[in-house]
């Protein structure tokens, strides 16, 4: 039996989604002519500005393409569902937003994305466009602390892209933008739990199996297995487990300041996210950590997967000012 979806032809889901996106947001974004998988900000790119190019597989909306706009990403290369975009649309994004100050690639750390973005960078180097790459690696559960560079990028992308977009919008040079992006990534910690699978529009079959009373801690945003599977627990227990994992690594001190993202993987509703946030706020207060800002909702999804993730992003003055910098994207506004 196939899962239910509102689609036409699963194989054309990404194309059709993009047409719907462009129809909805004509004041924010456009596709590069001849390269429909290259989505570009109407207002962001300009001469002398570093171009921030993000991208990745589809199925995580509003990540990635929803974060294209003034003050955030200049362009996004759009892959198939859960699949990195090929080099061509990435190259077209970079060319479209090149302001002569260099290009920054920022995306989640997945083998496929790395290979495709690296190929794109090589192709751009041949045209004398300088490219730097920052991988987001915020998924605490995906590799041990000593191997942070192997971790996946998940919902924490939000803070990493936000910092980079602000830096570029302030006309900082490529070196500075890269430094700030890396710093933002270093200060970003995410752990997620999954309760029920999503299914790809092409197959319409659940992409993993999970028992009726089970949840998986640390599951990836494509349904990659996490660290452990256990019985579904209460919201407070789940949050405590996540926060314990994050605190163990982040080791926040009293007086530290953080931004919080409580993110739905798809079908977990706001009610449950806010119930989680209640406990997140209590844990942060207990630890003497100040919450500068909180976002709650669908920011980095996995189609209709049930589950949620919590991200803490530690702020210093610089990162806070990047976070507070205004942005105006197709699917997100702040500042």
């Amino acid at each position: 039996m196939q899962t239910k979806k509102i689609v036409n032809d699963g194989a054309r889901a990404v194309e059709e989604m993009l047409q719907g996106v462009l129809a909805a947001h004509p004041r924010h974004i456009r596709a590069v002519e001849g390269s429909p998988r290259s989505i570009v900000s109407l207002n962001g790119p300009r001469p002398g500005k570093v171009g921030l190019v993000i991208g990745g597989g589809s199925g995580h909306e509003p990540t990635f393409l929803g974060f294209v706009g003034k003050g955030l990403a200049d362009a996004c290369a759009v892959g198939n569902v859960f699949a990195s975009p090929p080099p061509d649309p990435i190259v077209e994004c970079a060319k479209a937003v090149d302001g002569g100050a260099g290009i920054l690639f920022a995306y989640g750390n997945y083998a496929g994305d790395v290979m495709n973005f690296d190929m794109a960078a090589e192709m751009l180097a041949m045209e004398d466009i300088e490219v730097r790459t920052v991988l987001s690696t915020d998924d605490v559960a995906s590799a041990p602390p000593g191997e942070r560079e192997k971790r996946r990028g998940v919902a924490g992308n939000f803070f990493v892209f936000k910092a980079g977009g602000a830096a570029a919008d302030r006309m900082l040079p490529l070196d500075e933008c890269e430094r700030i992006l890396r710093k933002a990534n270093d200060q970003t910690y995410t752990v997620g739990v999954a309760l029920a699978p999503c299914s790809l529009p092409q197959t319409r079959r659940p992409n993993f199996e999970i028992g009726p009373d089970e949840m998986e801690i640390g599951m990836g945003i494509h349904g990659e297995p996490g660290v452990e599977r256990g019985p579904l627990r209460t919201a407070d227990e789940i949050v405590d487990d996540i926060i314990d994992k994050i605190f163990a690594e982040m080791a926040p001190s009293r007086g530290d300041r953080v931004a919080v993202l409580v993110n739905s993987l798809g079908s977990t509703p706001l009610m449950e996210l806010y119930i989680m946030n209640r406990r997140v706020a209590a844990r942060l207060a207990d630890r003497g950590v100040e919450t500068h800002a909180t976002w709650v909702g669908n920011y980095c999804t996995s189609l209709e997967m049930a589950g949620a993730s919590i991200t803490l992003h530690r702020l210093d003055g610089e990162l806070q000012s990047m976070l507070d910098h205004p942005c105006d994207c197709a699917m997100f506004r702040a500042g």
Partner: peptide, 12 residues
């Protein structure tokens, strides 16, 4: 192959 796929297996 590459342009149709991306992903990991595309570049490979």
């Amino acid at each position: 192959f590459l342009n149709a796929v991306g992903a990991s297996c595309g570049p490979l």
